[in-house]
Each structure stands twice: as structure tokens, then as C-alpha cells.
Design a protein around this nucleic acid. Structure first.
Lengths: 336, 336
DNA sequence: GTGAAAGCGCTAACAG
DNA sequence: CTGTTAGCGCTTTCAC
């Protein structure tokens, strides 16, 4: 049978209360009994049950993570960085793939609640804030990462998508491009629309006109962006550069270009977003806007952890700056 | 305050035992009280506490997953497929990144134990079987995925690495290659050494000699394999084809070839292993040996779940067949 | 069919 | 300093 606090107490010749106290390092215990208890725990290989301690009013030391899809490299990297920090702080991470489905999100949240997780990190694309309001009402601590939700005061850490979009377009403009298109997934997602806003501002700032027909929306996968890029490239007046709102979409652009025998960056310049491993792997290596994933993961966990422990303070927005990572997919425009 | 089983009982005018019975669908309850209880649970939005029910003797409906690194696409895809199936069966998944460190593995296992997970899935590269023997002794159900451990009877699902290695080499040979090298990560890992064994057998079967100097070992990352491939390509007698023991390593080979202005597959044929998303993304698309990740994930979860519920039966090894996925990175050897 | 009561392993007053 | 005791929310005999 599993060894319990009673076994330790008996073996050490003390009460369970005493054992509990040495475990939790509270109250005043004589050095003597403390070492005695420790040695007994050691020899019996005792591990306190988190379940029991949670039921008795302590935490479960578990956080939930809602994300669209682990198989998506960006979110895998986010999850990795979150798990790292969570583990450092003594929390386990339960992972939930929502595929951005509202029902799944709700279902998982309800599940996490039943399991009494201490807090939830949300990286999934909740469209409305109802679900978050409910969470607030339930007093279940939560924080968002890489997803904005401006209509409600929440803890959130994300990159400045507007700035990132601006930087991407500005870099292209700086290289001499004037015909710049953009490809995004679902523009109802805040981060996409912000990146596009930034892109647009850079254009207008440079005296270029924003052309809606150069804004393509597609599914969040390679074939989707390949098709979208194809439509752009087959236009009467095709762009000389494409800003893909994330690295995965940039790969679709690469494929569309390849199908048309357009070289990158010779005929077509491409810039991505996220700086996932994809960016360094494709040929030519992708110039992209980097998100500080490590830092973001660390910060959400820290914030959530503080909330859990009641040191929350006011809700905060941590907006990190993206960075331009120059590789080889952007050059001066083709001047054929 | 949170609504408990007592609230339901009071509101429905029955005892908590009765409520418990309708929740768990055991015992004989009149249709009348059943519906009454249900409606009260509904209206009070009652969610039974998994913690309490676990402490009282039920499961936690949680599985642990030990893997080296979520940010590694292969494992991310594995994790995704496992989470999918686990969720279907009502289990949550807590993820643990071990970086293949023995101490981390042990630490995480001990943690999972404290949290009373119902079972553990291990995808991390445990080198010795001690840790697994301990697990067995503790009667904590577990299963391995994508990692072999031949010295102990365990539940395990993996791909036939030997066959996969054979298929890779055989495909190259079939195309006319005779100078075939191989790059692997840590050969102490079973799957690597098996793939190499299969490769070797294919060579010898074809009357080709196995040359140890054409077997390169490197760290499990792109720069590592780039260097390894470089060494191969700079050999006096360089190979005309390289079998990279996984897709990530294949990318390093691509880079080494590019640095030397060798075209793929013109000058050098390359074949990978795993068929992760990388394979379809690189240029040219990578011919590779596919692991049925979905199927594997589904099967470990099913097996583990049966064990948890006591329908375990004998330990089993599920060896799935890999498949050759032909893309564009292999051709007939260059006949300059 | 239904309920009373013991207990799962631990925490947290409170008493001594 | 240490022990007693009452729960935490739920499951499970065992009576009725």
C-alpha cells in the first residue's frame, strides 16, 4: 500500500500534525524531531499526496494551457517555454488542444475547473470575451498569451503586432519595394488584423496606397497560403513582395513562387512573422519578424503564478517588442 | 462558494449517497429521483470535484507524458495525437519535457506519482531500464511510444525502425546508388541503432560493403547534422546519397549540400525519417520514411487506458510498419 | 430505492 | 513545541 502521513507519524513517534508541519515548514518544530521526521520520510520514501493536500485546501500546483494546436510549431514552442517556467515554479502543465473551437475551449475550461487547476493560460483564439468574463466571475486565475482581448481587463503578454506588421512592411519599403501584398489567416483574430494595420500604416507613411486586393486571407496552413499567394502572383499587377503574417504562411508563398518559377528573393521578396524554426530551415532562409517566445512564456507564467498566490495586483498588459531578423528572402525589387 | 454534492442533495431533497449514485450511474435509483437530481445539478451548474473523487478512491483521469522536447516537431506531433485520443477517452494530459536527462525523468515521474496520475506515457529516451522497473514495482501503469526497451516486458508501440532503415537504404539502392552514407543522432538510442542496422542489411543484401566511415553521428539538431554531412561530403570518396535518420537531420544535410553548391537530388540524394511537416516544407520536398504518428498515439493511449482500468492482460509490443513517402529529394546518382 | 456513516490523506485551528 | 480534532468533497458498504 502507499505510504501515508500516518505511517511517517507512527514510525517517527509523533503526530500527523507534526509531520505535516515539518513538510510544510510551518510552526515551530524542534530540530530533533524535524530531522527524525525527515529521516523517516526518506527511508520510507514518502511522497505527500497532492490530491489529499489539495482537497484539504492547498493548491494542486497545476496550470492548464489552452492552445489551438500543439502540432503547430509556433504553439509548440510557446508550450515548451511555458512548461519550462511553470516547472521551475513547481507547477505542472496540462495541455488542451482546442483547434480554436469555442465549444472545445469551454469544455476544456470546465474540465480544468473540475480538476481544480490553480490557473489557466490561454493561447487560443477566443473570439468573444464571454468565456473570459465567466472565468473572472469564477475567480479562477488566468492569463492570455499571444492573443489580444482589448474589451476586458486581463493579464496578458503579447508581442506588439502592430509594430511587427509595421516593421515588416517598412523593411520591404526600405529595400525599394512599392508593390507589397499581405497574406493573413482569419483577420477576425486580433493579432492578424493588428499586423495588417501596421503594414498599412507603413505603406501610407511611405506614400504608398493601400490596396485591398493585395490583402489575401486564407486558412492557417501551407496549401491555403500557397493558393492565396498564387492568386496574388497571378494578378495583372502582381506584387513584388509579400508579407506573410506568419512563417507557416510564408512557406506557402515559397511554394507558389516555386510553382511559377519565380526565384526568392530575385523575383519575389518574402517576409514572415514569428521566427519559428521554419524560418531558419527553408531555402532561402526566411527574413522574418521575431517574437520573443521564451520571454513571453516566462512572463505569463510569472504573472499567473503571482495571481494564484494572491500577489496579483492590477491586471497588466505586457507588450513585448518584436524584432526584425534579416535572412535571405528579401532583396531589392526585381527591375526587369 | 463552490457548489458541492451536499448542495445538490439538499436542494433535491435526497442524501449525498443518492446523488453520488446518479452521478456514477450505479445502484438502483428511481427514474423520478434521478431526473430530479439531474435537473438540480443542471440548475446549480454542479461539477463534481475530481480531486475529492480521486481521494475517495477513483481515478484522476489524468495521464502524464514524458518526452524530450515539445519544440521538436516530431514529438509535438506525437503529443498532439496522444492528447487527442486521451481526451476522447476522458483523460487530461500533463506534459513533461525531459531533454532526455535521466534526473529530469526521475524527477517528473516522482512528481506525477505525487499527483496520482492514472498512468504515464514515455517517449523520452530512457537509457537503462531501472526507472521502468521501479515504475512496474509501484504498479503505476505506463507505456512506451517510439522508444524501444527490449530488456524488459512492457507495453510499447513503435514503428519498425529496422524495417524503416532497410526501406530507406533499399530505396536509394534501387535508384542505383552504391555510395550511401547515414547520419544518426546518438546511436545508443535504440531507434537510431535499429535504423542503422536496417540500412546495413540493405547494403549487404545488395552486395555493397558497409563502411563505418560513412556512418556519422551528431547532435540532434540542424547545425550538428550540417557539420556531419559536411564531413561526409568532403571525404575523398564522398557518398552520392545520404540517409538521415530523421527529417531534422536531413535538413542539415540540405544545408551542407547547399553550402557546397551541390544540388539535391542532382548531385546528392537525401532521404529522411519520420515524415514530419518539415519533409513537405523543404525544397526540394523530402523523400522520407513515414511513421504513423496518429495511429501510434491512439494505440498507446488505448493500451494504457486498458491497463488503468484493469483490462490490461499481457504486456504487448505493437510494431507498426513505416512507409516510404516518395517526394523529390532522391534521384538516380549523378553520373558526372 | 435510499440513507447513515466510515474513510480517502492531508491541513489548520485550537488546546495543552 | 506537539497533539487532538474537525473538516475538504466524494465513494462505498451496509442497513433499512
Amino acid at each position: 500500500m502507499k505510504v501515508t502521513i500516518y505511517d511517517i507519524a507512527k514510525e517517527a513517534g509523533v503526530s500527523i500534525a507534526t509531520v505535516s508541519k515539518v513538510i510544510n515548514q510551518i510552526g515551530r518544530i524542534s530540530e530533533e524531531t524535524r530531522t527524525k521526521v525527515y529521516s523517516v520520510m526518506e527511508s520510507l520514501n514518502y511522497k505527500p499526496s497532492v490530491i489529499a493536500s489539495a482537497l484539504a485546501g492547498k493548491q494542486t500546483f497545476t496550470m492548464g494551457l489552452l492552445l489551438p494546436d500543439l502540432a503547430n510549431l509556433f504553439f509548440a514552442e510557446v508550450a515548451r517555454s511555458i512548461e519550462n517556467r511553470a516547472h521551475e515554479l513547481g507547477f505542472s502543465l496540462v495541455i488542451c488542444n482546442t483547434d480554436n473551437h469555442l465549444e472545445k475551449e469551454e469544455h476544456y475550461i470546465s474540465l480544468l475547473e473540475q480538476k481544480s487547476v490553480d490557473g489557466i493560460i490561454i493561447a487560443t483564439g477566443v473570439r468573444n470575451d464571454d468565456i473570459l468574463k465567466k472565468l473572472t466571475k469564477k475567480k479562477l486565475p488566468f492569463a492570455l498569451i499571444a492573443r489580444d482581448m482589448p474589451t476586458i481587463a486581463v493579464d496578458i503578454v503579447l508581442v506588439d503586432d502592430y509594430l511587427g506588421g509595421y516593421m515588416a512592411a517598412a523593411h520591404l519599403i526600405e529595400q525599394g519595394h512599392t508593390k507589397i501584398a499581405v497574406i493573413a489567416e482569419d483577420t477576425r483574430v486580433m493579432s492578424s488584423s493588428e499586423r495588417i494595420r501596421g503594414y498599412r500604416y507603413a505603406l501610407e507613411e511611405a506614400g504608398l496606397t493601400y490596396r485591398p486586393d493585395w490583402v489575401e486571407v486564407c486558412d492557417f496552413n501551407v496549401p491555403g497560403s500557397r493558393d492565396a499567394a498564387g492568386r496574388l502572383l497571378d494578378l495583372q499587377e502582381a506584387p513584388s513582395a509579400i508579407f506573410a503574417c506568419n512563417d507557416l504562411l510564408a512557406i506557402g508563398v515559397f511554394q507558389a513562387a516555386r510553382e511559377r518559377n519565380l526565384s526568392i528573393p530575385g523575383h519575389l521578396s518574402v517576409i514572415g512573422f514569428d521566427n519559428t524554426m521554419f524560418a531558419s530551415i527553408v531555402d532561402p532562409p526566411l527574413t522574418t519578424i521575431s517574437q520573443p517566445i521564451q520571454d513571453m512564456g516566462r512572463q505569463v507564467v510569472d504573472i499567473l503564478s503571482k495571481n494564484i498566490n494572491g500577489f496579483g495586483g492590477n491586471k497588466q498588459r505586457v507588450v513585448l517588442s518584436p524584432e526584425l531578423v534579416v535572412r535571405s528572402s528579401v532583396s531589392k525589387p526585381d527591375t526587369r
